[in-house]
Amino acid sequence: MADKIATRVSYGNALKDLAEQYPDLVVLDADLAGATQTGIFKKAYPDRFFDCGIAECNLMGVSAGLAAVGKIPFASTFAMFAAGRAFEQVRNSIAYPHLNVKIGATHAGISVGEDGASHQCLEDLALMRELPGMVVMNPADDTEARWAVKAALDHEGPVYIRFGRAAVPVVYSPDTKFEIGKGSILREGKDVTIVATGILVAAALEAAEKLAADGIDAEVINICTIKPLDEDIILKSAAKTGKVVTAEEHFITGGLGSAVAEVLSEKLPTKMARIGVRDRFGESGSAAALIKKYGLDGDGVYASVKEFLA
């Protein structure tokens, strides 16, 4: 795997790179432009950047109004405040009127690190997945993150995109083709399916290599679009392997694990396990140390899959 880059940086770069092509694109932040990396866009297009200050509820409402008059706003703040604090504004001012607002939520998950549990949002995918008409994406690397920003611009309607703080390996080559609502098979296998999203994709690939050394042939699927979910790719793989493990930097309830369990339990009941954070808040520490502690690195995924197969 090549260089590492945080998807929040990919986000800021993509916004800047797409600004010429999409003249209606505007970017809003809530006093976190330096952290969310919308500052990259702000520097290049200061007239199309609006700082709402520390007022996330108003940030979402202003974005709704901009969309109502034809702009394509990206509303940016940490996932905790985008999906959490401003949940009801996202629901009633953006999702209910189905306005063309894109929510760029950074610093999601436990890899926020040292700031601790108050800022480690582990429930955003669950919250956003509940909203009718909301597209929910969780890119795995730089390539997918940049694509997700463009895909959101081309999609008419509200989109939530989750970006991370920590640098993560680049999994995809720059010319990879993606599609909203379509997962991708990164490694074919026949013994067990690992369905991963976000930073767990690289961890799942690493785990698959370790499993191979043990004679276990794991299939690794990346699900970037949590909603709408690519049911076909999951059902086909589950039919082949008969065993499914989900892996996400999120509570095991409500996110990818739940989404996959919903599909399988209705259409193809399959033995499964969910890797994620289990009914507890996060804590302070370096991103790497926390990812290891919570079993979300390659070793952690490997151990969980081995336990599941035992």
């Binding site: 108003n58 409402g61 202003v62 109004g65 109502a68 008059v69 702009k71 001012s93």
Partner: peptide, 9 residues
Amino acid sequence: SAACGMALG
């Protein structure tokens, strides 16, 4: 808030 967004737009 939405009215503010419209006015800004």
